[in-house]
């Protein structure tokens, strides 16, 4: 009996020590085909919505702009505008709208995810409403 209890306690201690709460993780799909024949792709899809994220020197978000419009730093405002523009182009289920993100190089990555969250969808009453799931990064021009 005693040895069994010893082993059982050892097992218990092992499982208690290795126990870790797992936080659910999810993915955002980004499809970026290799850059090729830029002349052909220009006339195919409609213009993507360009979301530009500017950063201060320490990596904080300073402004979001959608196309030529400057929206400040509110992601809810970005979501509203994107939803409006998508509705103008035929509603969220039309797969034709693409969003192109152009963050500053030194912007903190969490703002990028926040922007992607804002344009991908919205959680209302525990349900997810999709807005746009075609997201890509704008090509960068390096000197």
């Amino acid at each position: 009996m005693t040895s069994m209890i010893d082993v059982v306690f050892l097992l218990l201690i092992f499982f208690v020590m290795t126990f870790k709460i797992i936080v659910p993780e999810g993915d955002f799909n980004i499809k970026m085909p290799p850059i090729s024949q830029p002349q052909e792709t220009i006339d195919l899809p409609p213009e993507p919505l360009r979301v530009r994220l500017s950063a201060s020197p320490n990596g904080r978000l300073t402004t979001i702009s959608l196309g030529d419009r400057v929206l400040g730093t509110s992601f809810t405002e970005l979501r509203k505008r994107v939803l409006l523009m998508i509705q103008q182009r035929g509603g969220p289920n039309k797969a034709s709208v693409e969003i192109e993100l152009a963050p500053d190089d030194h912007l903190r990555y969490e703002y990028v995810i926040e922007a992607i969250t804002a344009v991908t969808g919205e959680v209302k009453d525990g349900q997810i409403y999709k807005i746009c799931d075609k997201i890509k990064f704008a090509p960068r021009h390096k000197e």
Binding site: F28, K31, P34, L107, R108, Y111, V112, R140
Partner: peptide, 23 residues
Amino acid sequence: DAGKVQDVIELCQSLKLENFKLR
């Protein structure tokens, strides 16, 4: 930095990988 993530994506793109998932 967002640029670091973009560096990684561009590297993979140049190696013909095209499906990315940001976790």
